[in-house]
Design a protein around this nucleic acid. Structure first.
Lengths: 132, 132
DNA sequence: CTTTTATAGGACTATATTAGTCCTATAAAA
DNA sequence: TTTTATAGGACTAATATAGTCCTATAAAAG
């Protein structure tokens, strides 16, 4: 299983593409789709999610399209991951606390929480600007 | 999505249970199943996987059961995770290299590889002995 | 030497998650 | 008013995961 899902990976590529055009005019989903080799429909879906979560701006109509809402070095990988696949969790217990009969003293969750922190801090501290 | 899957979580609990009995005689899957609240059939499956990968020893017949093959502080979380859910990968690209059209110069994979390393080293450096 | 207790493991089913498509609506520029 | 482009709900398909069932085999105890 992957921590970063396929759609999130696509979204990272789309985001990176937008980052590299930061400051220029909007690009259409059609073009992004072609450049990043992601189906047009799916590209739309993913860009819409980036838009909904405030990462991308959009403009409808001719000459419209998408653009990165904030500078690349302010757009964290974490925010993109969250936008597409939601909050990530190391295991079920850390996500929905009540699932495990051993809560709240499970030594396993306690240790895995450290891992979760480290993954989160990596994603929080890496931005699109770090990728090129 | 979870990095540690449900079955892996069960297996960690089973492993921890075995770790806490390290040096004592074998315990049956039935008892482990009851103590860890995992269905008997599934417990068998998971213990078999731990056995196949050399993490647990087994003895058939009456008075038989399972036991941890090596001392708790030599049994890494990584080995258990691997045994149950296979090698973990941050994203598809890092797992099956050929999947991405941008290989091998994809800046995203390059960065995510760092995260993968950090997760792997955490799991490699944490043992069942660290959990209690 | 047969009965009982326990693991071994293939095959299968069910469930959940993820990916991807289709269709219609809406906004804005030319 | 036509064309270009995003918005988004509903649906389908594909894949992955969890879990069960059934039969075989090993070994101890009577």
């Amino acid at each position: 299983m992957d921590i970063i899902r396929r759609n999130t990976d696509y979204a990272l590529r789309l985001g990176l593409n937008l980052a590299q055009r930061y400051g220029q005019k909007a690009v259409s989903a059609r073009i992004l789709s072609e450049e990043e080799k992601v189906s047009y429909q799916l590209t739309c879906k993913l860009l819409q999610k980036l838009h909904q979560s405030g990462l991308a701006g959009s403009q409808m109509g001719p000459q419209g399209g998408y653009f990165l809402a904030h500078p690349p070095n302010e757009t964290t990988l974490s925010s993109i991951v969250q936008a597409i696949q939601g909050p990530l969790s190391i295991n079920r217990c850390l996500f929905e606390k009540k699932i495990c009969p051993k809560q709240p003293d499970c030594p396993i969750s306690k240790k895995l929480a450290e891992l979760q922190d480290s993954v989160e801090s990596f994603l929080n501290n890496t931005t699109l600007g770090d990728l090129y």
